[in-house]
Each structure stands twice: as C-alpha cells, then as structure tokens.
Design a protein around this nucleic acid. Sequence first.
DNA 1: GGTGGAGCCTCACGTCGCGTGAGGGTCAAG
DNA 2: CTTGACCCTCACGCGACGTGAGGCTCCACC
Lengths: 340, 340
Amino acid sequence: MLLKVGELAKRTGLTVRALHHYDDIGLLTPSARSDSGYRLYNGDDVTRLYRIQALQRLGFALAEIGDMLAGSGPALPGLIAQQIAALDGQIEQALVLRARLQQLQRRLATDTEPTLADWLTALELMTMYEKYLTQQQADILRQRKAELGEQYDADWRALTDRVRALIDAKVPAQSAEAQALAQQWTSHTQRLVHGDEDLLIKLDTMQRHEPALQSHNGIDAAVIDYVSQAMTEARLPIYAKYFDADEVERLRGNFRRHMPEWPTLVGAVRRAMDSGLAPDHPEAQALGARWQALSHATFCTDEPAMRGKFMQAVKSEPDLLLNTGIDRALLDFVIATQSH
Amino acid sequence: MLLKVGELAKRTGLTVRALHHYDDIGLLTPSARSDSGYRLYNGDDVTRLYRIQALQRLGFALAEIGDMLAGSGPALPGLIAQQIAALDGQIEQALVLRARLQQLQRRLATDTEPTLADWLTALELMTMYEKYLTQQQADILRQRKAELGEQYDADWRALTDRVRALIDAKVPAQSAEAQALAQQWTSHTQRLVHGDEDLLIKLDTMQRHEPALQSHNGIDAAVIDYVSQAMTEARLPIYAKYFDADEVERLRGNFRRHMPEWPTLVGAVRRAMDSGLAPDHPEAQALGARWQALSHATFCTDEPAMRGKFMQAVKSEPDLLLNTGIDRALLDFVIATQSH
DNA sequence: GGTGGAGCCTCACGTCGCGTGAGGGTCAAG
DNA sequence: CTTGACCCTCACGCGACGTGAGGCTCCACC
C-alpha cells in the first residue's frame, strides 16, 4: 500500500511541509514516485517515520535521528544520558530565570509605582548582585540599603564628589584632606558591610569590574585608585612601628609606584582560586611568580632584612590586610604556588 | 567620552558582532560615526545597552526589548507574568521529557541487550501509552503485559489472522465462527484489562487512532469493524427479550447499516467532553443532533413504541453498553446537549 | 469533453540571535 | 613605509519547518 504525502501526513499528524523537509534533508525519502512526480511512501517508509517521531519526542535533533537510524554515531545509552544532562541544564537555567522574574514581580508589587528608569536600574543592580554575591549576601545588602535609606546614597555621591575634587586639584594622597576622606570612605563602607570582610572584597571586585555600576554611582577607576592610595598612605604609620624612617620612605616611594598594580593581581589570583585552578598548574605558577616580583618591588622582600621586618609586621598587624582584597585563603594559595 | 565598538564590547562582555546586529535591527544605533565610519557610542548609548542586557537576562526577545525601551507595547507587569507563564510551560515540558528519557534509561539497563528495532518499538509504545493513558494505567498495562508474557502477543496475532481469514472468505459476522471469534476476542481483551471499562475504552480509542499500532499488531480498521459487527450480532439475542421477532429483524438490518458509524461519533463526543466543551455550545449541540439522528436510524427511536422498548432494554441490560465505548458520563453529556 | 476543486509539485523567503569568514579601509607605533 | 590591531560592509549558515507563489494532476460532476 503506497501513501501520498497528504495521506501520510494525516496518519502521523505531521504537516505535508514537514515531510517535504524530511525529504529535502534526506531523513525520509519516499521509496517511489508516481509518474506525475507524487511522493509515494511504502510500509517501510511509514515504519521509519514512526521511529523518527518517537525519537523526536525524546528531544533529539533531526540530524541525530538520521545518524541513529543509520546505525552510525555513538550508542544510544550515551546519547540518552547526554540528552538528560542537556535537559537538566535547560531546566536549571529556566528555574533561575523564573526566580529572577518572580523576585522582580514581588518588588514591583511593593514599590510605589516606579518609573521605567528606576525599574531598569533596579534590574541592573539585581543581575549584578546575582553575579558577584551569594543569595544570602544579596538579601543582606538589600535589607541594609533599605534601612540606610536614600540619604546613604546621597552621602556616597557627596563623598565621591569631594574625592574627585581633590583629584582634579591634584592634591596628593598623603595630604590630610585625602586621609580624612579615606577615613570617611572606610566608615561609610562599614555602615553597609558591618565588618564582613568577604562581602567587602566582593563589593570591591564588583565596583572594579562593572562599568555600569561605575557610571551609575560615579565611583570609577580614578576614584578607586585615589582612595586606595590614600588608604595605603594611612598604613605607613603602622609600618613605621617595624621599619626605621629611611626604610619607611623607601616603602612610600615603592607604594606610590606599585600599589596600583596589586588589585589587578589580587583579582587574577582570586579568579584562579575560584575557578578551582590547582596551585601547581602553570598558570597558577605564573601568578605566583608575578606575586613574588611585585612583593619584591613593593616591599623590598628580596632583601632579607626588609623581608624579615615585613613578615613581622604583617603577622602582628592584621589591619594591614584590611581593604586589600587579600585574605588568609588567598595568601595560602599564593604560598602553595611557590612551594612547588 | 565616545567608545568604539570594540571598547564597548569589552566593557559589556558582548561581541562586536552582537553590537553590529543591534545596530542592524535598530535596537542600539550609535549616536555618532567617526569620519572613517567607525561607530561611536556615547554615555546614553551605553546606558541603553546596559538596560538591554538586563532585560535580555530576563529572557525577553530583542524585539520585545526594543518595544519596552521605546515605551510602547504593553506594561511591564503583564509582560513579566507572561514571561513566567511561558517559562513554566518550558519547565514542565522539559520535566516530562526528562521523565521519559529516564524511564527509557531504566528499561535499557534492565532489558537484555535489545536490538535497535526492539528498542524503537518499545519507545513508540511508550509514547503512545503516554498520549492515551494516565501514568497509573500505563504502569498497570506494562505490568500485566510482562506477566502475560510473549505468548499473549502470539495469541493475539493468531486470533487476528483468523479474523482476517473470515473477512477474506466473506463469512458474515452473524455466523457461528465469527461469533466464536468475537467471544474469544472479548476474553483475550479481559485478560489484559480485568474488567476495567475505562481502560478498555482508552485502548480501543488508541487502537482506532494509531495507524502505527495497527500496522504493528495487524489490528486495523477492517478487523475492528468486523469484530464489532460480530459483537453487535451477539447483542441481538439480548434485544430479543424486549422486541418481537419482526422488530429484531429490523434492528439487525439497521445495525448492519449504521453500527459502523457509531465509533466515530462516540469518539467525537468523547473528545468534546475531554476538551471541556459546554453542552450548550453549538458544536456540542451539533453532536447531540447527530447522536439523535443516528439513534433514530439504528434503533428506530423516532417511533414511540420502539423507543420505549429500547429504553427499557438499555436500562435493564447494562451489558448492552459493553465494548461500545459508551459510559454513563458520556450518555449524561449527550442528554445535556439535548435538554438545551 | 470541459470545468472546478482538492491535492500534489518545486522554488524560495522568513524566523532568531548572532557566528564566522571574506575582502578591504583606518590608525597608531616602530 | 610597513605591520598589526581594529574597523567597515556584505552575506551565508544554523534548525525545523511556516507560508505563500506559480503551476501540474487527478477525480468527480455536468
């Protein structure tokens, strides 16, 4: 019994166009044509089509189905496992998306009629939080921001403007004004992070890597660099407890030149850690070498005397690592790269 | 500050090609071009791009994003709800697919190295079960089939072959041979369904509507029709308890002509019921009218005397509805269409 | 034998969000 | 003056068909 396309289409619930397509791509070629060129499908064709449909309902692509029916290609169990894995990925993605949308929906319901612009800004912030913070941290931040109110943002803007003014006026970072601002900067930050060093590091990373955020709150690379320079200067009195005056002057000079290179390196190391890179991996080794070189240049750790005093200082003064993005885990990682 | 494509791309994590694409479709047109034709993006462009990205991360299509940013189109809350609904659909679909694949995986693990052909046959059956039966029913069926073993399938094939032989030999359905086969047919069916009328109806529907199944087990429309004719004939003795001999002969003649039309109508009514059609909907009304006309033609229910006897018979003999695909709910639906 | 309608044929473009060249200008550094 | 990085504009490709356009075939009915 030979079927024409329309008949086969009716029998299988497909469209005529789909059957044409299968013919085009060679997935199901009718075994015969009538004199007038009509496609004629025999029983074997029909059987093949049923199988095609069955495999299609499992989510396989037409090309894959073709391979499977040709007996070539990888074995079925593997394909199925692969298919399941792909589906799991899809499902997870969809669930994440769904959660995002729902959160947004809730906030839309509570907020007092936000404008489109507000709304989009909130949205951007949300996706950024999601990228850099854990769910918990994002929740904490949102709550604290709500508690602090709009005045807090205004304070930041004022502070940032004053920093920028100092930069424009070329006031050096070790000036009293700069020191005072850096002081305020730290206390403002603490109002948000409440001493949570991990949160602080992540926010710092976010601020450094998200131009969208930078243009939103005006805290760009220049401001960040200036403030961290000032903070660095603020650390010099602490070093003075361990080094003599000449050495402190050397350190100051080194800091001026090399401190701006640290955040980049610290960020690179942290990314390496987070991506699970092994300390003996060549890339990690390279980072370790960079770290050592920069240490030498900044703290003169290539000179045994200086190195000893430096180690002593760092060990005795945990505050020296504050606001640097460096924590115990990161230091351990770096040490591990160098012990290989 | 004006950015070139590459710079903007780096800042946003997009590719240059994507930005070209946004320009092509008018989603993000750079506010300026350099003399040499380079795209130049200003701050507003960058802001717009951040918003585009934020909305994209929510799963909106570029065209939708364009509409949203243009302020036209429907309001955001509605769009979000819609988006969530769409996602829910996707997730559900993916979960169903996943379940299918896992079931298959389990069976692949237990079965003794099936050939590709066996495997695909099982797959077809599985998807068919899924389409017509509830999960429970499918499980029950699978278990019973496993208990009955291969002999059961062989019995069916033998029975079907004998039916086909009668058809080819043009042996009438009221013959003793046909009656005997119909008898066996029923008992064979019962070995599988164990008196579950709902399951029986669904299997019947499946067998009638799935050419794949028909060509698989050889039970096609001709066989079904012949067997149901024989079953119909088998019912005549029951009617004889309520009608006199002449009337029974009239019924026999009517049955011969009109009984084959019933399954189609019953199927149509059931689909209408299942799709939640209201009995006073025009389409339901039309079905009711068809039902009445076919009743008149088959059972002479337009003649008051015949109608009375018929109602009496149906009420007293529930067996008359056996194997017809008609149950109480369906009758109620039909009656409801006619009371409007 | 003509006509009408259903069904068949073969192009061929559109979908969606870009990837991936091809072929050729622009710009700053050496 | 070259080199290399970056930019430009086409334009095809993907996947599974949908949707015509323009024309042929078949069958029933007049």
